[in-house]
Design a protein around this nucleic acid. Structure first.
Lengths: 134, 134
DNA sequence: GTATTTGCAAATGATTTGCAGTGCT
DNA sequence: AGCACTGCAAATCATTTGCAAATAC
């Protein structure tokens, strides 16, 4: 709780119940889309509206509190802003795991004539659990 | 033209004027969203409808003719299916350039306990032209 | 106390659907 | 000829907006 309040204030946003509960939902899930956030927060705050979530997803992105994770063919998910990392996305169960970008990977991504600012790396495949099932 | 016809037939799709012109528009642009495809194809076939584009974007994805490129905060773009590559996306002019994934990068992306099937790598920064302007 | 934020309902925008007619093979 | 595809209009779904009341600081 307290940490979401300071996270918001550090980024020039007022700390409202709506915002902290949206952040708690995102943090809890790791990666989550707007409809699922709505389902979560409604349990605790039944009057919290979808419009409020849409508005806050926008301002919290603008203020660098959260980051959009675009998904092929489905609605974008959102995650708390954290250090650069890549996503291991399981094509079987849908689970998304964050993984550190190694220094070898970073070096491999140095491209001639392109001034790199940031990267977005998604790896699709099978997670450990789903491998053993197959 | 002929090449789009065979591309469609090879992938079990009937070759219609609508489909070949959508493919021509995608191929020409490299990476393009649905509205821009619509603007393009309407010039040549004014009766071609948006609904037809939506329907065909779906079947052509299902039949491995084209691939979605999800974009943060804006509508997805589409590209012809081609060998695995990464995208260099210029944050200034919006241009997207395809670049080969080197063998060093591939090796760096071998992760323990994850069976990699495919990858999606987007690098954001400044292209050569926009670097020299700044 | 003041400016921002919220929640509602309405407006807009994006995508999908149903169906009669058309065109590919 | 037969089935798949198209174009239109309507339906649905997603997102944004306007505004009065509520809340953070």
């Amino acid at each position: 709780m307290t940490n979401y309040i300071s996270l918001l204030k550090e980024n020039d946003l007022k700390a409202t119940i709506q915002r902290t509960s949206i952040l708690a939902s995102i943090d809890d899930a790791g990666h989550i889309n707007i409809d699922d956030i709505y389902d979560n927060v409604k349990k605790q705050y039944p009057t919290l509206s979808l419009a409020t979530i849409y508005k806050n997803i926008i301002v919290m992105q603008e203020n660098n509190v959260i980051v959009e994770v675009p998904m092929n063919g489905e609605k974008s998910k959102y995650e708390l802003k954290k250090d650069e990392h890549m996503h291991l996305i399981c094509q079987e169960c849908g689970h998304i795991k964050d993984t550190k970008i190694t220094s070898e990977t970073k070096e491999a991504l140095i491209i001639e004539n392109f001034q790199l600012k940031s990267s977005q790396i998604n790896l699709f495949g099978l997670c450990e659990k789903c491998q053993s099932k197959a």
